[in-house]
Design a binder for these strands. Structure first.
Lengths: 210, 210
DNA sequence: GTCTATAGCTGGATAGAC
DNA sequence: GTCTATCCAGCTATAGAC
């Protein structure tokens, strides 16, 4: 990967972070990257092509940075801890913000949509693997669609990031509330046989009613 | 409210829906509204001013459309039902998509940020009121920050809407997984004294450990 | 691979006729 | 209040020199 191509990739992410998807243009990116504007088209064909490449490059690096930490998780409690630090680290780096902007842009850009879908699948794939392992013999195992939950978590983080941009206090509070709920899950997860049996039977009754 | 001003408001929402925040311009909106481009500036001063006004007008109408339905809710189960239909109706109308795009644009636009924050507060205010009522004497009452949860729900719906744009099947699955979790909450909520006491004491133990 | 230059278009915003 | 006309900035994309 030549220096210029890499600078363009980095410049793209910085520009998205600092100006949002609406502030993206060949000129704004090139200026951030310290590179001639025409080189966007020489190297990536179009703005869209550059966005697609940047989306790809940004995600794969970050996801693989977490693979070992995810692999070491053996309980819901540990998963919560890793999730917490993942969230704060990625938020700090502005990666969630970038993903949110790319996702907003993807709503009306087919090619970009495919790229962000791939990027999100990298994240959800990781989460899915851990969740499946951790919930394997919990009371949630029967009633939880693990891939679905992984996707909900990813979408939730992105929504929270956007919310954070207009109401930081509210977002902090929302996150805290979710953690409380997660603790409830943890409690059920670690519950003894009495609680377990009670919950299981109520779930069955509900399933019949539906 | 003059006809032209209203047409501009409607045109703005349609344009955001169909072209995203990056596709918004005085010309694109005016074309959609069937109105002269210069009138954007005559009536609203700037694009930003129009976006702010549109954000306001779109939300207040929709929120008040739900106030009676929310007021009638008396249980978590009923709240889930209303939430489900709210989500599908607003999604159908494209209102969530508009809010998501406005929120993405708000990340780098202070005035718009204030407007969307107000809009979201209208939603969360409603949800908060109902949640507080419904969870009042559930086992969740002690451990749940209701305003925080209301914000998390709003952010979650927005995240899901964006996710839906790039992976509709994944989004459907994510929503289903969340509903399953909600059912678990419902079960705990309706649980008998044994389960209740077990959960409460474990929660306390956890609280001490932290 | 990188640069300059430029064509051709779309953008926000305003002036001034009606 | 609404329209035309227009300024000028910024945009994508390409041609062609180096």
């Amino acid at each position: 990967m030549s220096d210029t191509k890499q600078r363009l990739l980095d410049g793209t992410l910085t520009t998205i972070r600092e100006q949002g998807i609406a502030g993206v243009s060949a000129r704004s990116i090139a200026a951030t990257a310290g590179v001639n504007q025409a080189l966007v088209f020489y190297h990536y064909g179009s703005i869209d092509g550059l966005l697609v490449a940047a989306c790809e490059s940004a995600t794969s690096a970050r996801v693989s940075a977490y693979s070992e930490r995810f692999a070491a998780v053996t309980s819901l409690r540990e998963l919560l801890d890793v999730g917490r630090s993942l969230h704060s680290e990625e938020q700090e780096l502005g990666n969630v913000a970038v993903l949110a902007q790319l996702l907003a842009g993807s709503q009306h850009d087919e090619k970009l949509a495919k790229a962000t879908a791939r990027a999100l699948r990298l994240w959800t794939g990781q989460i899915e693997e851990v969740l499946g392992r951790v919930l394997a013999d919990s009371p949630f195992a029967d009633v939880t669609d693990v891939p679905g939950l992984a996707r909900a978590l990813s979408a939730g983080f992105i929504g929270l990031e956007l919310y954070d941009g207009v109401d930081p206090n509210g977002a902090r509070r929302a996150l805290a509330a979710l953690e409380q709920l997660a603790v409830v899950m943890e409690v059920v997860d670690e519950s003894g046989p009495v609680v377990r049996r009670a919950i299981r039977s109520t779930m069955k009754r509900k399933a019949r009613r539906r």
